[in-house]
């Protein structure tokens, strides 16, 4: 259970740069009305950001080329099916983790 002043300052620096983007829109939006076109654009953000985060795992950059991570895509399929059928967060997470653990156990 130790740390140093330098480490605490580094963590505080990271905290600050994480905090500002989080709170800035809450302060700005409160004091002004967003134009309609911006609201329409924002409506696409959730689906875009969530799909980008999922798709990020499909690929891996190897020095110069981007390769497909087949294991992640194989695990994605049952995970997606459980999500579609159950519409449940916890069931999907369990299905994903168990499938991934199974694949790693048998194929690596």
């Amino acid at each position: 259970m130790t740390t140093s002043i330098a480490m605490v300052l580094l963590i505080l620096g990271c905290a600050l740069v994480t905090w500002i983007p989080r709170i800035l829109p809450f302060i700005l939006v409160k004091n002004m009305k967003l134009p309609k076109i911006v609201l329409r654009w924002l409506a696409y953000i959730p689906v875009c950001i969530l799909s980008a985060l999922v798709i990020e795992g499909f690929f891996k950059k190897d020095s110069t080329i981007v390769t497909v991570q087949w294991i992640n895509i194989l695990v994605f399929i049952p995970t997606l099916l459980v999500a579609l059928l159950s519409k449940s967060l916890s069931k999907t997470v369990i299905a994903g983790v168990v499938t991934m653990a199974g694949f790693r156990f048998f194929f690596s």
């Binding site: 959730p46 689906v47 969530l50 799909s51 985060l53 999922v54 795992g57 992640n72 695990v75 994605f76 995970t79 997606l80 999500a83 579609l84 519409k87 449940s88 967060l89 999907t92 997470v93 299905a95 994903g96 983790v97 168990v98 499938t99 991934m100 653990a101 199974g102 694949f103 790693r104």
Partner: peptide, 20 residues
């Protein structure tokens, strides 16, 4: 990683995407 726990994050994003 051996226990597949790292995939919990992605699985959660999959579920949130489907729910959205």
């Amino acid at each position: 990683e051996k226990w597949g726990l790292d995939y919990a994050l992605v699985a959660m994003f999959v579920a949130l995407l489907v729910l959205t």
